[in-house]
């Protein structure tokens, strides 16, 4: 699970080592990546929103 999160974060940043990417594609389950990816997208939106609220005060 930790590895899935790490890979998703790497994808969000846009950079990942080729080896790890190959491992993910061969061993990981796509559903896990999709669910964590969607959750992280939500976290990103909420995060930016909180940042904007803080900055507006």
């Amino acid at each position: 699970m930790w590895q899935v999160l790490k890979s998703v974060l790497a994808a969000f940043f846009g950079v990942q080592k080729d080896q790890q990417r190959k491992k993910d594609f061969e061993e990981g389950r796509p559903t896990a990546f999709i669910i964590v990816g969607l959750l992280m997208a939500l976290v990103l939106v909420v995060g930016i929103f909180l940042l904007a609220t803080t900055a507006a005060e």
Partner: peptide, 11 residues
């Protein structure tokens, strides 16, 4: 065709 360091830097 790839270089992790360079990619991290330019992101």
């Amino acid at each position: 065709h790839e270089n992790t360091t360079v990619e991290v830097v330019w992101t």
